[in-house]
Amino acid sequence: MMIMWIIIVFAASLLLWGIFSYNRLITARNDVRNAWSQIDVQLKRRYDLIPNLVAAVKGYMDHERQILEQVILARSRALTAQRISEKAVTEARLSREIKGLFAAMESYPVFKANQNVLRLQDELVSTENRIAFSRQLYNDLVANYMTLLQVFPDVVIASLFGFTGAEYFSASTTERRPLPAAAIQQ
């Protein structure tokens, strides 16, 4: 009689733990997906801003046409990248090209007097920062999810219900958090 009760209690607590564990995994996975779409929002913002900036400066930077073309090329490559690791590489490349464009724009004082260009520049700098922050958040959440997947008791539930891992959004080692243009002037 006693043994039966013990078995029932044990089974019930096992089931409860299983439920909590599954829910935790689901929450973590959804957080990862949400954070990825947040990055997408910021990347899309950057894709939309770049043509505006290029159009605004094109009239003046005739000698620097090569830089402008490189920016546009990097942008179209980043747009078409599909897998996360590929996207990381193309986005890092685009960030570098934009930084090069800002550096070239420093030697044209006419842009400092043009509010439209200044505004676009600040928006792009802000977008770079936002991409960096949302990437940080995404990676933190991926780490959280992977830990939950691999920790001992939960790994049973995970493999039982077919949870797969997620990829980190890691850039190349030379890419750092982009400095705002104002800091470069100092």
Binding site: Q115, R119, D122, E123, S126, N129, F133, S134, L137
Partner: peptide, 19 residues
């Protein structure tokens, strides 16, 4: 306003950072 817009941008970055 350019300066206010810069403040709004910084706030948005901070919202993303702290979630």
């Amino acid at each position: 306003d350019v300066v206010h817009q810069r403040l709004l941008n910084v706030m948005q970055e901070v919202r993303l950072f702290t979630n």
